[in-house]
Write a protein that binds this DNA or RNA. Structure first.
Lengths: 199, 199
DNA sequence: GGCGAATCTGGACAGCGTCAAGATCGAATT
DNA sequence: AATTCGATCTTGACGCTGTCCAGATTCGCC
């Protein structure tokens, strides 16, 4: 509670907050545990007691990111009325999240520094994937276990949104990135919805 | 020439070779310049004379990777006869390269450790992008500068292939990754070709 | 009130990237 | 043919990193 006590009180949460700042400023590759500790005004070895090692901290960060990732999609889906619209807005949320949290997004999908075998992280990513499955199943009327078309549609839709997001982060697809905001979002919608055809 | 001479002879190429081994074994994030020097049997400061710093080495590696990336696509296109087939096989080559060189692929697109402003690297990535443009233009009959449909198709096709590749590397899309080899390639073809519709 | 467990500190160690100074060699010049 | 010069490579140093360890501090429970 007090500002200068030996025990912090809620160091774990504070470290996670600072870790996200560190991540967005320095990226996954230059992420430094000691720097996070310094940001939180705490000794360099303090994080170990809450996260074990740097992989543990990044894993916790990725898990929290995954939950917010799903939350962003759910929020975007509120403006949808049909299953098709829901899937589309979910994809828009996918890309929006990536653009708003580039380093976190890369940590979640690309990085070998996080422990993707971790239970909590695995559950969190799984939840996001399950939601995508539900959204597609609501359109095809079938579950992926029973229907190849549904499986293919899931793969296609996910790849499309993910590829657009990742390319936008890498600064590659100039035809989309260079657009003014409103046209840009329209283009994103157009690209994503292009992958909805059932066959 | 001789095995134990003070001057190596072709250290730059040797370092680049070992750097790729290091990259595929340790990934971009744990890539170590000293480790590469050790692999090449040379002092820890030797690489600096050929690449400046670690970013320079990774940049050279990414540039070489980009050229091989384009070469892989061109090779795959040889089995195509129509423009549509050419674009499809090019996409298959895109995914194939990513799966065969995961760390290199991630370095080329995702990493902040390479200097993407570098001239040589920029030219190499640009060449790959230009080739994609040509492949799409051959189908639509128009150049992207003049035609929005062509621009959108480029973005869509590229995102689709890139997303599929990146998700396969992250181990996420089980419906594709878990397939036996032949069905797997068929699924990849199906997913990529799904993004070809002009509207 | 005291005791055990959790939390945090400070020091140590090896490995990292980078810089500077010196050793070695190839090749061009004289 | 000897010498000089620039390119190449080594060695040592510095500050940074992640991780381990022993000790100090504090919380919660008995």
């Amino acid at each position: 509670m007090s500002t200068a006590s030996y025990h912090h009180g809620d160091l774990r949460a504070a470290l996670l907050r600072e870790a996200e700042v560190e991540l967005s400023e320095n990226g996954v590759e230059k992420f430094s545990l000691r720097s996070v500790a310094k940001r939180a005004g705490v000794s360099h070895a303090a994080p170990a007691h809450h996260f074990g090692d740097v992989a543990g901290m990044l894993t916790a960060l990725a898990a929290e990111g995954s939950r917010r990732f799903l939350a962003t999609q759910l929020k975007c889906e509120e403006r949808a009325k049909t299953p098709e619209e829901r899937l589309l807005e979910s994809g828009v949320g996918y890309v929006e999240f990536a653009c708003a949290n580039p380093a976190l997004f890369r940590l979640m999908f690309g990085s070998r520094r996080a422990n993707h075998g971790d239970r909590d992280l695995h559950r969190a990513s799984e939840a996001a994937f399950d939601h995508l499955i539900d959204n597609v199943s609501a359109i095809t009327g079938k579950r992926p276990e029973d229907d190849r078309t549904t499986r293919m549609m899931i793969s296609r839709v996910w790849s499309q949104a993910h590829g657009l997001a990742d390319l936008l982060l890498s600064g590659s697809p100039r035809y989309v990135a260079d657009l003014p905001p409103d046209e840009r979002e329209a283009a994103i919608r157009e690209i994503i919805s292009g992958s909805f055809a059932e066959k």
